[in-house]
Design a binder for these strands. Structure first.
Ligand code: FES
Ligand code: FES
Lengths: 157, 157
DNA sequence: TGTTAGTCCGACCTTATTGATCGGAGATCA
DNA sequence: TGATCTCCGATCAATAAGGTCGGACTAACA
């Protein structure tokens, strides 16, 4: 119910990892490749590759080809919102399939629909929530330090 | 992306209609049957029936069998939350598939997962939003009155 | 400079979820 | 009692997601 796809899940993990490698290590512009992420989180390699391709196409990360190649974050972590990531993978956010009426074709129920307005309000709230949360917020709240605390360190903010 | 299923959509429409018929007409305990709703909103009849069955099983509405039978709201409109409706149709709310770890089986990524905590926070926010919105709130905001005739005229057959 | 190894990239197939459908059981009113 | 109208459970088809394959490119190295 209201579940985001696994591909989006992988995208979030990968981006978090790339961001951590980029700002947490000593090397500032460190390039991280697909295999490293896939092995770290037990993600099917080829599937993760596909996800990263999509992310690169949407200008969230930059791809460097050849040996020692890989991906680098295209912007700073606090400039990337969760909404941007999810929309890159799964298309525009729409809580119901008739949210975005495409070129003159509305759903059958549109005429007598009684739930459109309140549902759009719910959708707006969710969109706002996702837009206000950045990748940096997701990294344990602490900006540059790598997390890695075994205890359930709260992410209160 | 984050789209709720069509069945849940139908459930919301049907419940709104039942509530309107129950409190908007002169008859307080009016029974409304499946066919009436299906024709009003152009919903496939049998599918809507299935949805209503599920709703009845979850004690959101009561079913009255036989001729002149149909469904009646089990509680007052302001006692039914959107979250209850959605969860009745689509199961418990989980933004990711590993939200509810079922009996000892966690996902492969659990060990090194870096996005679990923030995602649970997002899920909590959405759940709270849906729990605070009742069926009555969805009916134009105005409490019990305001359901005038547009529905009643279409129901005549 | 030629080779080679390692990377990204696009198209394809398989599986799971949702959407929709069918016939039967039970209950009420005439 | 009888017929009719309703709800109910099991079944089938369409769609989207998850996963997989081989090809194209780039950059480092000998
Ligand atoms: S379901 Fe499409 S407008 Fe309400
Ligand atoms: S994906 Fe399952 S715990 Fe993070």
């Amino acid at each position: 119910m209201l579940k985001i796809s696994k591909k989006a899940d992988y995208a979030l993990m990968a981006l978090q990892h790339i961001a951590a490698a980029q700002f947490g290590d000593m090397m500032p512009g460190r390039v991280v490749n697909t295999k490293e992420i896939a092995e770290e989180y037990n993600i099917p390699l080829e599937l993760l590759a596909k996800v990263l391709q999509t992310l690169a196409k949407n200008a969230l990360i930059e791809s460097h080809n050849g040996p020692k190649g890989g991906y680098v974050l295209a912007r700073r972590a606090h400039q990337i919102t969760i909404a941007q990531i999810l929309e890159s993978i799964e298309g525009p956010l729409g809580i119901t399939d008739c949210s975005h009426e495409k070129d003159g074709e509305f759903c059958m129920q549109r005429e007598h629909c009684n739930i459109r307005t309140p549902l759009l309000k719910v959708q707006d709230s969710i969109a706002q929530l996702l837009n206000n949360m950045t990748l940096q917020d997701m990294m344990g709240g602490t900006p540059l330090i790598t997390i890695q605390s075994p205890t359930a360190q709260g992410v209160e903010r």
